[in-house]
């Protein structure tokens, strides 16, 4: 089976902050990484290939040329090959334009049995590209898979996380799934994988290569627009309770009681 894992390169977002005075982003020393959820997707792709005893794992990404570095990392983690969709025309894509672009690339790759994405990317946290892509490809979609119980060339039985527990779903393939972190423990890239990645060549496709309709990619193909970026509101000051531990507890209890909180 040909398995495609979609990968996004993101800034290590926990370090991106807004300067509350100037309202600008502070990104000093923030490096780019593979979206953490996508590492689980990749690991699952490699596991599925191993379970099936054959096939290939293709890592697919869209972004500027430097994303090659992340795709090489994907190869060191077990992907057999990697494709980068890179073109100035893709810049400014929202999730709809991105999913269209990825879907066109998947068409070109052809004969894909399973597409795996991380649950969401940690920069945008939208969780939209996977499902939107499935719509364009017109194949089934299951979100938040926490376990692939069975898989053959034709179908998979998966557990989907829900708000109350999980569903067991029989899913015909090809299909798109997104995975949560519970699904596996990603491997550490070994030396052989790193050597392979060093030598690997990343295929680069432009908008023309994937026959993309220029009306549906990049800024032109995007339906949403960011109008403002700002820092979250800090909360008003509260009070520190002081004294001996017993006094503190008595004071807390009285406050909560009088505020009808307990």
């Amino acid at each position: 089976m040909k398995i495609v894992v979609c990968i996004k390169e993101v800034p290590a977002t926990t370090k991106v902050k807004i300067n509350p005075e100037t309202n600008t982003l502070m990104r000093e020393g923030v490096e780019s990484i593979i979206n953490p959820y996508d590492v689980y997707a990749l690991e699952e792709g490699v596991c599925v290939k191993e379970r099936l005893g054959g096939g290939s794992v293709v890592a697919l990404s869209m972004g500027p040329p430097q994303v090659e570095r992340s795709l090489k990392e994907a190869i060191s983690l077990g992907a057999d090959e990697a494709i980068l969709l890179s073109d100035r025309a893709f810049a400014g894509s929202d999730t709809l334009a991105t999913s269209y672009t990825l879907a066109m690339a998947l068409d070109k790759i052809g004969d894909v049995g399973l597409v795996i994405c991380g649950k969401q990317a940690i920069d945008g946290d939208t969780a939209q590209v996977g499902p939107e892509m499935s719509e364009k490809l017109d194949i089934p979609f299951v979100a938040c898979v926490r376990k692939i119980l069975e898989i053959t060339e034709e179908k998979a039985i998966v557990e989907r996380m829900t708000d109350d527990g999980y569903d067991v779903i029989e899913l015909p393939l090809p299909a798109v799934i997104t995975v949560v972190k519970d699904i596996n423990t990603p491997r550490i890239a070994g030396l052989k994988g790193k050597m392979r990645a060093k030598k690997a060549r990343i295929t680069v496709w432009t908008a023309t290569d994937i026959n993309a309709d220029e009306e549906r990619i990049g800024l032109t193909g995007s339906t949403t627009k960011v109008t403002k970026v700002f820092a979250p509101q800090p909360r008003g000051l509260g009070m520190m309770l002081e004294g001996s531990p017993e006094e503190i507890i008595d004071s807390l209890y009285d406050h909560l009681k009088s505020g009808h909180v307990i």
Binding site: P11, L25, D123, T223, K225, V226, K228, V229, F230, P232
Partner: peptide, 16 residues
């Protein structure tokens, strides 16, 4: 919120 809640973004859908 975006970027792990570190920033807020206001988004519109003007064309569709």
């Amino acid at each position: 919120p975006a970027f792990g809640g570190n920033i807020m973004a206001t988004i519109i859908c003007p064309y569709t």
